[in-house]
């Protein structure tokens, strides 16, 4: 087993709002291994972006974080703002959905990449420019030297996202956080950017945390996947295992709701009910009210426990969860998750 680069230990994030406290992330524990591409998936409001903002120290003031987030062994939650600034753009970098928000509209694309290099390293302007040109070429900006001074609006969305990626890898980060990096792009451009991400990962060995809602994107480039629902991490598994045998009832329901691609397939399966209001989150498993296999014990929070297959799920139907939670095997031989 390789080394862990990033570890979330029982991380919870609450937002203090007028309507009460919203528990956006609850007790998430998760370890990212050096060099892997880890996908975090879930629908709107599941907490995947809140968790990543907690990691970057970029949550708004109304948020409070509990638990520990260890990056190379140091706790990010106790770092000062200046320590975090040192890390961001250097050891940890970010790519967001909309490249327009990551780039300054008034400066040339090349100098923005060069600025990132100079902000974290003692290099001359000339050296930074040369390196920026190399990076722009590496991410596939054609005629990078001629476009160096172009402002972002002269570039298409796909090209802008390439520039953002060039800046993100400029200082050889250990961790790249990519939050919906291809969601705003057309499908043929998305395919190009996913290729580029996979390629950069291979060449630099960067660990990638990919936040996505599109299961197709996750299937294409991730090594392992975590599934979140209503602030809880409900399943973590190697990508092949997750797509071959989704185990948590929510993960299964999510896969069932995908249009299969075989046309005239009849009605899609839907998940009954709605995501709970996280200002009044139910106790225990937050999927219980929509779950077709609800048990009495679902009022208690099921622990995420690893089974023999390498997949971990947080569900009282699962033998590993039951063992971890000190419960005996299920009395009725019903629909098991094995």
């Amino acid at each position: 087993m390789s080394d862990s680069l990033l570890e979330f230990r029982k991380v919870s994030v609450d937002y203090a709002g007028r309507g009460g406290t919203v528990s956006a992330v609850t007790d998430v524990s998760l370890t990212l291994i050096e060099g892997e591409t880890f996908g975090l998936v879930g629908e709107s409001g599941c907490g995947k972006t809140t968790l990543s903002m907690a990691l970057m120290g970029l949550l708004p003031d109304i948020a409070s974080v509990r638990g520990r987030i260890l990056f190379n062994g140091s706790d990010l939650t106790t770092m000062t703002e200046s320590q975090l600034r040192e890390l961001r753009g250097d050891r940890i970098s970010m790519v967001f959905q909309d490249p327009a928000t990551s780039l300054d509209p008034t400066f040339g694309i090349g100098s923005q990449v060069a600025d990132t290099i100079r902000a974290h390293g003692d290099v001359s302007r000339k050296q930074a420019k040369d390196r920026a040109l190399g990076l722009l070429a590496e991410v596939g900006i054609p005629a990078a030297a001629e476009r160096y001074a172009d402002p972002p609006h002269r570039l298409s969305g796909g090209m802008r996202q390439r520039v953002v990626l060039a800046a993100a890898i400029a200082n050889n980060p250990a961790l790249l956080l990519a939050d919906e990096p291809t969601t705003a792009l057309d499908v043929t451009i998305q395919a190009q950017i996913l290729d580029l991400l996979a390629d950069l990962q291979r060449r630099h060995g960067t660990t990638i945390l990919l936040i996505a809602h599109d299961l197709g994107v996750v299937a294409q480039i991730c090594d392992r996947v975590g599934v979140m629902y209503a602030g809880q991490l409900v399943e973590v598994a190697p990508v092949a295992e997750l797509f071959a045998r989704p185990r948590h009832p929510y993960t299964r329901a999510l896969f069932d709701a995908l249009p299969s691609g075989s046309h005239q397939a009849g009605a899609l399966r839907v998940i009954a009910g709605q995501v709970p209001d996280l200002a009044h989150a139910p106790t225990g498993c937050r999927f219980k009210d929509r779950c077709p296999s609800r048990l009495a014990e679902c009022d208690e929070t099921p622990p995420l426990a690893m089974s023999d297959s390498g997949a971990s799920i947080a569900c009282w139907l699962d033998p590993a969860t039951r063992a971890a939670g000190g419960l005996g095997p299920l009395a009725i031989a019903g629909e098991s998750n094995g």
């Binding site: 499908v187 043929t188 998305q190 395919a191 996913l194 290729d195 599109d214 299961l215 197709g216 994107v217 996750v218 299937a219 294409q220 991730c222 990508v239 092949a240 797509f243 896969f255 995908l258 691609g261």
Partner: peptide, 15 residues
Amino acid sequence: ALIDAIPRPDPTQRM
């Protein structure tokens, strides 16, 4: 090309 570019929700069929 459009059909080929769809990211399939199947890790055994990578693009």
